[in-house]
Nucleic acid binder design. Structure first.
Lengths: 334, 334
DNA sequence: AACCGACTCGGAAACGTTTCCAGAACGACG
DNA sequence: CGTCGTTCTGGAAACGTTTCCGAGTCGGTT
């Protein structure tokens, strides 16, 4: 490997026979003399010059980079977000940095703190939960931040949220309309933001449809397939009269489908099932799973757009966008 | 927002009453005088100093960043890779940049070219296919590159590959051992690297098990769920005697499962099904899908480790690692 | 007591850009 | 023909670090 030093703007200037300031101007379109531009371009070609983004960043004080931080990219919801955030940013020339915090609150905070190092121009953050220290860190963040998820009203930061409360209510109303009377709910942990919101939405749905609230039909477990399966087996054993189950996410709902199959109950004939998040799992399961989409892709796109506005210098007051949920009915509840 | 300028090493030096060189040395552990270190640290605390990584990068000529480029992060195989690459790099202080090239060869090449801008210290690349221009670009890449996927032998670049040929053979041998005699294969496009390798592996498996090769039982379609389902419906209509189907990935195999269900054929009683890639889909489908893992997570981890070695200055000849496939047998072929 | 080596510290020069500023060139106008 | 305004160019100063180099201090050896 020939360890030749890569050419700088000085080489170009020498070859073109002009000053480095003229080279810079020609390359950045700040010159009108066509002859100068042509000479510089020729010299650039000749020496194979490529600007150093690091030096540019140092001088211009922006990096052309944006970070996205979330718990685990393996989570389908975050994955959908990345898939929309990346092209949105890329189209206007930003690079995307990924931070998987791995469910570690300290790690989340250290990402926020590290923003002072100025290695990115902005951040999109999906916090697991929002502590006082988060609020403090968000207040003094060195660059614009957009938070995807619930956020106290007084935190001066752009915010995009899903409405999983309404989402859960939608699911319950749909199940009730299609004839279900004994609707069970398998939720995630109640001390997480989505777990809580979905529980509230479930009860709200029961209330609006006039169904009786029976907390013995509600279980809290992890947002995982096996957890959903085992919990469903137990629940259905104790309450054979259940005629519909709402899973707090698609993985749980898939577990429920498995459990029902093991118990020999027909879906949707005996029991209807609905999941949440509307991941690719839902469309390919058998029977195909009805699911409430919480608009992950949209949330990602909107967050990216909000951030881009800030990076453009917009200093309007922070915005709060709520993406409405939508239910896709498939065979599991038809 | 108080637009106060963030403090530099000069502020720290002034407050501590020492020179900027001493501050730099103290912060980088190049000084032994405990008193100096203490004073500098105190000053750092007092003014709230955080080093500028951009300035550091300019001076030290490395950025602490690594890029990972692939077609689409939505693909489960790439997703698994990212999930292992990120922590591996993070543990030694590197940040990860994501490039989804979106099946665009030009975009892939432009990523390679952009390496000359020196915004990353290294790259992990999963090329769709390897053209002459790729080879040329890889040869003159400005920073170390590790390629995940097939690569001509003479390209001087670290390389990690799966062995989907052996993977497909494994699947066929397993199906034959469990009693299948008429094994069909639904492959992806034959002009893609994995499509070709899996086809070869399928035929090799038939050969080693002594089963007759019948190309009317092989179909080429897209690596997608719907494609798999429709192709399976057609295939099984024409050949009702098929007693096993290998899908070239899990999505195709899921489509096959659906098709069999629509046709009222029992799995695995009437027809056994095996997929490839061993994605999360496989474990949650019903019946749970047997699948050949091509070691995406391992490939990601190994690629990251190889790259780290290069970044550490290792200039040994390029390495070539092949990750062996492994079959996980689940209900769909038991 | 003088000298020598080891060690520490400050000054200054990089790293590769952008941009401010001042001067040169030049046409136009009085 | 002199002056003024405009346009273009080159020099030089940043941006915020790291690191080289030389000067100074100090303890130990002859």
């Amino acid at each position: 490997m020939t360890q030749r030093r890569r050419p700088t703007i000085h080489e170009v200037a020498k070859v073109a026979g002009v000053s480095i300031s003229s080279v810079s101007r020609a390359l950045n379109g700040n010159t009108s003399n066509a002859d100068m531009v042509a000479r510089v371009n020729a010299a650039v070609q000749q020496v194979g010059y490529v600007p150093s983004v690091v030096a540019q960043s140092l001088k211009t004080r922006h990096t052309g980079q944006v970070a996205f931080a979330m718990e685990d990219i393996g989570n389908a919801a975050y994955l959908e977000m990345v898939r929309r955030i990346q092209p949105t940013l890329r189209d206007v020339g930003y690079r995307l940095l990924l931070h998987s915090t791995g469910a570690d609150v300290e790690d989340e905070l250290s990402v926020l703190a590290s923003l002072s190092q100025n290695y990115v121009d902005g951040l999109i953050l999906c916090p697991l939960r929002v502590t006082d220290r988060h609020v403090e860190a968000l207040r003094r963040a060195a660059v614009p931040v957009v938070v995807i998820g619930l956020l106290p009203d007084d935190v001066p930061v752009d915010n995009v949220r899903a409405d999983s409360r309404v989402g859960a209510r939608l699911a319950v109303e749909h199940l009730a309309e299609s004839g279900a009377r004994r609707i069970a709910f398998i939720d995630g942990p109640l001390d997480t933001v989505p777990g809580r919101a979905r529980y509230d939405g479930f009860r709200a749905g029961l209330a609006t449809t006039g169904l009786r609230t029976d907390d013995s039909l509600v279980r809290f477990t992890d947002f995982q397939f096996e957890a959903g399966r085992r919990t469903a087996l137990a629940l259905l054993g104790e309450h054979p009269d259940v005629d519909a189950v709402l899973g707090a996410n698609d993985l749980i709902a898939m577990g429920v489908l498995h459990a029902l199959r093991e118990l020999g109950r027909d879906v949707p004939g005996d029991v209807r099932v609905v999941g949440m998040d509307d991941t690719p799992l839902a469309a390919t399961s058998f029977p195909a799973l009805s699911s409430v989409s919480l608009g992950s892709a949209d949330r990602g796109r909107i967050a990216a757009e909000l951030l881009l506005r800030r990076l453009d210098g917009d200093d309007a007051p922070p915005e709060r966008v709520t993406v409405p949920p939508s239910l896709t009915v498939r065979e599991s509840s038809r």
